[in-house]
Design a protein around this nucleic acid. Structure first.
Lengths: 132, 132
DNA sequence: TCAATTGCGTTATGCTATAACGTGTGCGAT
DNA sequence: ATCGCACACGTTATAGCATAACGCAATTGA
């Protein structure tokens, strides 16, 4: 899928995520955009829904946050499964793609006749800099 | 880790999850236990925290729900990573362990000097019975 | 006995997400 | 041209998920 022109709100939300050091919650994004006229959560969630659909933003289910895709140009939807390592100290997120993991998981799903639609692979722990 | 004797509340919550067909949210559990004297969410969350710690219950991050471990006797913490397939139609959850997936993910984490503590692997889609 | 730990109950609060309504704008078909 | 449609947007209200902070009771072990 090719990413269409972003609307004003989508651009604002995407820019906030791109400039952020780490993942942000929808409400944090809202606060950062109050000066730009944002007043309600729905304005953020609607923009996020589209950005997720376009594959330029990821949702981190385990921390209820959102992060800009680490591969700004290629489309993440074409990479198969995506895995994330999330540091619980500094919040940094590292994105990872592995075909072997894809292959094993998909093989198992196929054996179960399960049709995959969305996937979540998130590892929480501590990054090299934050290791105790 | 060996699972200690469960307290009254922990037993009630665990029984509800064990008897359930699929995953339940904390508030659904609360409703099912009102007749047993439960009045507040914390009573559920505190029990769940312990059950998660003992490894007899899993949390499904992507749907904010909880499910009894499919391996009642062995301890799930000794299995390495756990993956779940979650049917978005019927809610059924299938649990899955794969050493190859473990190995690949762990290898990558090691290469990043990332110390893993908790992991989430969840695939949402449709099971064989519910496939469109 | 005293202190520390653990579980429990209650009230209040905070965070996350969506429902439901209405408005405006662009655009293709008739 | 204008009607109908799709889409983005704004607002208010509400639903759903999770924890903070307080205090009490029972257990344990120094």
């Amino acid at each position: 899928m090719t990413t269409p022109m972003l609307t004003k709100n989508q651009t604002l939300v995407f820019d906030v995520l791109t400039k952020a050091e780490g993942p942000l919650s929808a409400y944090t994004i809202l606060d950062k955009l109050r000066d730009n006229g944002f007043r309600a959560p729905l304005q953020v969630y609607r923009a996020l829904d589209k950005l997720l659909e376009y594959g330029v933003v990821h949702r981190l289910e385990s921390i209820n946050s959102f992060v800009a895709c680490a591969h700004p140009h290629e489309n993440c939807h074409s990479h198969g499964l995506v895995a994330f390592a999330i540091c619980e100290s500094c919040g940094q997120v590292t994105e990872f793609h592995d075909h072997e993991v894809d292959h094993r998981l998909m093989g198992w799903l196929k054996s179960q006749k399960f049709t995959a639609e969305k996937s979540t692979i998130e590892i929480r722990g501590h990054c090299a800099s934050c290791a105790a």
